[in-house]
Write a protein that binds this DNA or RNA. Structure first.
Length: 415
DNA sequence: CTCGGCATCCTAT
DNA sequence: CTAACGATAGGATGCCGAG
C-alpha cells in the first residue's frame, strides 16, 4: 500500500461554537455573530482567551492572550466562561458522526480528528464530496461548522484544514504544495512555534518554501538534530505518521494551579500540593497505574519557572506517599520567593500490580491504601467536585499528618 | 563512551 | 510605551556523574 488518503477535521472556534449552539437552543443570541470569546473572568482581569468568534478576530483578538489585552483591543467584547461538561458532550457527538464515514479514526484532541479514508474510493469516489457530506451532516445535526483538510498524510491534511475558515473543505495534495503551502510563513508549519520561528527568521528563512529548500544540515544546526529533520520533511509535505485508532496510554499525570493571591509561605504551598496530590493520585488509581517519579514545579511572580523531581524507590498510587514526596521536593527547592503558580506531576508510570515490600512497609501502606479507596468511593458516590475537594482535603490532610508522624517515629527508632 | 537522572525549553490544543 | 498570561501533555536537549 503506497498512497494514503487522510482527512483532518477541525471544529471552527470549538468552545465558542458549542456555547453558541447551547444559547441558540435556549432562544438566546448567537455569540458567533458578534465579537465574543470564551475565557477567564473579565472582571478579575485574569485568565486568557480560549476561543474567539470571527468578529472578535477582526479586532485582532488572539487565542491564548490575556483577557485584559483582548478587552483593550475590543472594549465591547462579550465573554463567556468555559464549560467542559458541555464541550465533552459536543465532542462526543461530533466524533460519532465522523467515525461513521471512516475505516479508521484518530481522536487528536477535544475538537479534532484524523480519518484514514484509504481504500474508500469504491464507496466514496470523490474525496471532496464525502468531505462536504461529513461537514454538512455535522452542521445540520449538531448546529456547528467544521473545516475538513484532505491530503496524502496527516501533516498535509492538518495544514489544509487550517486554510480558509469556517465551514470549508480544502485539499493539499503533493502537486499543490508549492502553490498552497510554500508561500506561508514558517510559523504556520505545524510544530514550528514562536521560538523556532524566531530562530529561523534570524537565519533569513521566512517561508515554508524557504524551509523546504534549505539544506537539512543547516536546519539541524538551527533547530537541533531531531527537529531539524522533522521540519525539513514537513516543509516538503512528507509524513509517515499513521492514523492511530487506539490512543497510547498516558505517560504522565499533572495538575497545576495559578493562584489569585501569591503563595508566600510553605503552609499555603503545601496545602495546594496536598489537594493536587489527591487529584492526580485518584486519577492514577482510576486508571490502575502507579508512578515512580514525582515532580513539583512552580512559577515566581517574575515568571521564572522551576522544577524539582525525584525517582521513588517503588511505584505508588498512594496519595499520602505522593504528597510526602512533593512536600520534601518543594522544601528542598523553594527559596521563599512569592509564587503565582504551583504544580505537581507524576511520571515514569507503571501498570504492573507487582510490588516487593517488606512486611513492615506493607502493613504501613495498607492503611493508607484503604483510606484512598474509601475516599475514591465517596468521590464516586456523592457530590460535585468542589464539595468533594473541600471535604477530601480535610481528611487527606489528617492522613498526611499521620503519615508524617509515623515517619518521625521510624527515623527515631533507627537511632 | 554510554546511560540514567535531572532541569529546562519548546510545542500543541 | 511595555507588559499583561491557563491547564495539561509529550518530546527534545544539554549537563553531569557513574560505570
Amino acid at each position: 500500500m503506497t498512497e494514503r488518503l487522510i482527512f483532518h477535521i477541525d471544529v471552527n472556534s470549538a468552545y465558542l461554537s458549542w456555547e453558541s449552539v447551547r444559547r441558540v437552543e435556549n432562544g438566546e443570541s448567537d455569540l458567533r455573530l458578534i465579537p465574543a470569546v470564551i475565557g477567564g473572568d473579565p472582571k478579575k482581569r485574569t485568565g486568557i482567551v480560549l476561543a474567539k468568534s470571527i468578529p472578535a478576530k477582526k479586532y485582532g483578538v488572539k487565542t491564548g492572550e490575556p483577557m485584559a489585552i483582548a478587552l483593550r483591543k475590543c472594549p465591547e467584547l462579550v465573554s463567556a466562561p468555559a464549560d467542559f461538561r458541555l464541550y465533552d458532550k459536543c465532542s462526543k457527538a461530533f466524533k460519532e458522526i465522523c467515525r461513521k464515514y471512516a475505516p479508521a479514526m484518530e481522536s487528536f484532541s477535544i475538537d479534532e480528528v484524523f480519518l484514514d479514508m484509504t481504500g474508500t474510493s469504491g464507496i466514496y469516489p470523490d474525496p471532496e464530496a464525502v468531505a462536504a457530506d461529513i461537514k454538512n451532516e455535522i452542521k445540520d445535526k449538531l448546529g456547528f461548522t467544521v473545516n475538513v483538510g484532505i491530503g496524502r498524510n496527516k501533516l498535509c491534511a492538518k495544514m489544509a484544514s487550517d486554510f480558509e475558515k469556517p465551514d470549508k473543505v480544502h485539499t493539499l495534495f503533493p502537486e499543490e504544495i508549492p502553490e498552497k503551502m510554500w508561500p506561508l510563513p514558517v510559523g504556520d508549519l505545524f510544530t514550528v512555534g514562536k521560538a523556532s520561528a524566531g530562530k529561523l527568521m534570524r537565519a533569513k528563512i521566512m517561508t515554508i518554501g524557504d524551509l523546504a529548500h534549505t539544506d537539512v544540515k543547516v536546519l539541524q544546526k538551527i533547530l537541533g538534530m531531531k527537529q531539524g529533520i522533522h521540519i525539513y520533511r514537513y516543509a516538503n509535505g512528507l509524513d509517515d505518521d499513521p492514523v492511530q485508532e487506539v490512543p497510547e496510554s498516558a505517560k504522565g499525570y499533572s495538575a497545576e494551579t495559578t493562584v489569585e493571591e501569591n503563595l508566600e509561605d510553605l503552609e499555603s504551598i503545601n496545602r495546594m500540593l496536598l489537594a493536587q496530590s489527591d487529584i492526580v493520585a485518584a486519577r492514577m488509581r482510576r486508571d490502575g497505574v502507579k508512578c515512580r517519579c514525582v515532580a513539583v514545579s512552580y512559577r515566581t511572580v517574575e515568571f521564572k519557572n522551576k522544577s524539582h523531581q525525584r525517582k521513588l524507590l517503588h511505584a505508588t498510587d498512594v496519595t499520602a506517599e505522593i504528597f510526602e514526596t512533593a512536600r520534601e521536593l518543594i522544601r528542598e527547592s523553594w527559596k521563599g520567593q512569592p509564587l503565582r503558580l504551583i504544580g505537581l506531576a507524576l511520571t515514569d508510570l507503571d501498570d504492573g500490580e507487582y510490588e516487593q515490600l517488606s512486611l513492615f512497609e506493607d502493613r504501613r501502606k495498607e492503611k493508607l491504601r484503604k483510606l484512598d479507596q474509601a475516599m475514591d468511593s465517596i468521590r464516586g458516590k456523592y457530590g460535585n467536585a468542589s464539595i468533594q475537594r473541600a471535604s477530601t482535603m480535610n481528611t487527606i490532610s489528617k492522613v498526611g499528618q499521620k503519615y508524617q508522624a509515623q515517619h518521625e517515629n521510624e527515623r527515631k527508632s533507627e537511632h
